[in-house]
Write a protein that binds this DNA or RNA. Structure first.
Length: 661
DNA sequence: AGCACGGACTCAGAAAACTTACA
DNA sequence: GTGTAAGTTTTCTGAGTCCGTGC
């Protein structure tokens, strides 16, 4: 590997005394791709190198063809090196693909070490994330378009023209009419409260009861619009597509340290009604429209700053290169900050991802020690140490999340390990032939139910009994523990260790073991390994879809029933009474069907379903899969789709067939 | 010292959009 | 061949983790 930079040369020389540099260089050049980390698929010839800062905005930057997913970063360049501005060619890393070459293998390991070295250097010096950042700012939600005059809102059966502000909020509700949300009390209450805030004083005086509001005409109108959109001609659809593409090209990319990087979310979230997950106390509240004066822009001083729309101003333009976001604003529901950041394919996210797996690999080296330690701590004299030790055991063995404490009444009531309450576990000294069984039943992240019955060590069991003594169901199980205490301890056990590293480590190591175990030479590999989880997951999803459909159907039927009732009240004839009865029966029938489906779903749940998609993206070191593919000659496309390949470009490039997690 | 708080970042499922298989 | 359903990918944004800061 050639580094013109002295200090790297020095480092390199130490490690590679006898390398044939010339050969390497040639090989490298002939290779189409290049080492991701060194980012040598540069913008050479595309970005004008503007010298010293080297980052002046390239006025006519070309778009890199999509199939080339190496929007490779110049890590080396972003590191602090003296600006002797040698040309980039000298930085070209090696592409090592020589299968039989032992040297290559060795070099690869050294490579990895070097990467680590470079990373550490960048990271621990000053926390700088970039040297140059330029972008076009966010794309705002389209302005509200008032309803045509023939689409009416009715209050108490009478048409009523709403002020634009009140009307807009009403349309948000009308668009969700088919959704289960709108039947929930909290949702309706929150919505109505916030809606009234948008009303004129006359409207406020008149509209006092949500039940008397009739949004159906509005709802039908929007359904019609979406039908019309579906029925558009090919040309019209194409036109929209082109417009989107134009917007993407203009706003969907930024320049960060010499590379044109994809932005993850360049559109500002449009206004609407807040939909939390689970039993969220704030569901239905108005999520307000974000304006330029709410927006903070982050970019380089020496970049071309994005312009606010004519006649408006940004809240602030700052130049903080210790953070990775381009745009931020404060959201009005929880008061939290929202960001516009880069795509997972970007250098900055890729590096972080890679670092995450490196931390997990370091855990691999000391996990035995740590396990021995917490088992020892189960016997500690100190309560807090015992609690901590049992908690780590759960996190390790059951992949529980850390479980930060949350403000009551601000969010749905969900828990993780440290925030478990007595009511969430049951202890069985003896259960179905097993000893010391703990039954977990609680709502975790996104209000997803965690239900599990596991036998545990006797000591753990006894400890849990101890922790639960003299406590109420809603008391904390681990009253001497919280996530910051826990993580501080973990940090002492290993640099960079925190609760979530266990998930990454355990998921990845298991994948590796399973692949080793299940893959055998004389079998046709792909079918066997890839099929079962896929079909299983699918069947689960299908069921969920059925349930959802049934729910919608139920909501519809209920509404029909309501409408029929209203009619009957007005008309008082036999015919309408009869329809009410049929509708009522329909509702009942659908309710029963829904029940059946839900039972089915929980049954399957017992079989323990794993969200394969999520772990694939977030917990499994992609290098394991890449190595496996290379080893068995399986095309990487079989495993990762385009987006995933972009996200894992670093791993695809880095991992050889003998990679060991 | 310890703790509340905010900030920045990863991870998560729902929904929308798109693609492919199938009647 | 065409319309539709099923499957897959992409987008969206909410829900966590974790750490630094300031009292």
């Amino acid at each position: 590997i050639h580094y013109s930079h002295k200090h790297k040369d020095k480092y390199k020389d130490k490690e590679h005394k006898h390398k044939d540099h010339k050969k390497d260089k040639e090989r490298e050049k002939s290779k189409h791709g290049s080492r991701y980390w060194m980012g040598m698929k540069s913008l050479d010839g595309k970005v004008k190198k503007e010298k010293e800062n080297g980052f002046a905005s390239p006025p006519h930057m070309k778009i890199e063809p999509e199939e080339d997913f190496y929007h490779s970063p110049k890590l080396a360049k972003s590191l602090k090196r003296e600006r002797d501005d040698d040309n980039d060619l000298d930085f070209k890393p090696k592409k090592i693909k020589t299968e039989n070459d032992k040297k290559a293998k060795k070099r690869k390991q050294e490579d990895e070490f070097l990467f680590l070295f470079l990373w550490e250097e960048e990271r621990y010096t000053d926390g700088v994330k970039w040297k140059f950042l330029e972008h076009k700012g966010p794309v705002f939600a389209p302005p509200y378009e008032p309803l045509p005059s023939n689409v009416k809102f009715y209050y108490d059966g009478k048409p009523m023209k709403l002020s634009p502000e009140a009307e807009e909020v009403a349309t948000f509700f009308s668009k969700m009419l088919d959704h289960e949300y709108t039947t929930k009390d909290i949702f309706r209450k929150n919505f109505f409260k916030d809606w009234r805030k948008e009303m004129t004083s006359e409207e406020k005086a008149k509209i006092t009861d949500l039940k008397k509001c009739n949004f159906t005409e509005m709802s039908e109108y929007f359904k019609g619009l979406s039908e019309a959109r579906k029925a558009m001609t090919k040309e019209q659809k194409l036109k929209i597509k082109e417009e989107n593409e134009r917007l993407l090209q203009e706003y969907g990319f930024c320049i960060m340290d010499n590379h044109r990087e994809r932005i993850a979310n360049f559109r500002i979230e449009p206004p609407g009604l807040f939909r939390g997950r689970g039993d969220h106390p704030k569901m239905g509240m108005l999520k307000r429209r974000i304006r330029p004066q709410d927006i903070i822009i982050n970019c380089s001083k020496n970049s071309k700053h994005p312009e606010p729309p004519p006649g408006t101003k940004w809240k602030e333009v700052r130049h903080d290169n210790k953070v990775t976001w381009l745009v931020s604003w404060t959201e009005n529901i929880q008061g939290s900050i929202k960001y516009i950041m880069l795509n997972p394919s970007s250098r900055i996210k890729g590096e972080k991802d890679w670092q995450k797996y490196e931390t997990a690999r370091r855990l691999k080296k000391c996990v035995d020690r740590i396990r021995a330690q917490y088992r020892e701590d189960w016997k500690s004299k100190e309560m807090r140490v015992r609690q901590r030790a049992v908690a780590i055991y759960f996190i390790d063995k059951l992949a529980l999340r850390a479980g930060n404490e949350k403000e009551e009444g601000e969010t749905a009531d969900t828990v993780g390990c440290c925030s478990l309450r007595v009511e969430h576990i049951k202890l069985y000294p003896e259960n179905e032939g097993q000893e010391y069984v703990v039954e977990f039943d609680f709502l975790g992240k996104d209000s997803i139910r965690y239900y599990n019955k596991v036998p545990v060590e006797k000591r753990v069991f006894k400890n849990l009994q101890l922790f639960m003594e003299n406590k109420e169901p809603d008391d904390d199980l681990f009253d001497r523990l919280n996530t910051s205490v826990l993580n501080k301890h973990l940090q002492e056990l290993m640099d960079g260790l925190s609760a979530k590293v266990f998930r990454t480590y355990n998921a990845s190591i298991t994948l590796q073991q399973q692949l080793k175990e299940l893959t055998n030479e004389d079998e046709n590999i792909p079918a066997k390994i890839l099929a079962p989880p896929k079909t299983f997951e699918k069947s689960m999803q299908n069921l969920q879809a059925k349930i959802d459909a049934k729910r919608d159907q139920l909501a519809n039927a209920k509404r029909d029933l309501k409408a029929a009732k209203a009619d009957a009240k007005g008309l008082r004839d036999d015919k309408s009474k009869k329809t009410v009865e049929t509708k009522r029966k329909a509702v009942q029938r659908i309710e029963e069907q829904l029940m059946k489906l839900e039972v089915q779903a929980t049954d399957r749940e017992e079989n323990k379903q794993i969200a394969l998609g999520t772990s694939k993206l977030n917990y499994l070191d992609p290098r394991i899969s890449v190595a496996w593919c290379k080893k068995w000659g399986i095309p990487i496309e079989k495993i990762y789709n385009k987006t995933q390949r972009e996200k894992f470009a670093w791993a695809i490039d880095m991992a050889e067939k003998d990679f060991e997690f």
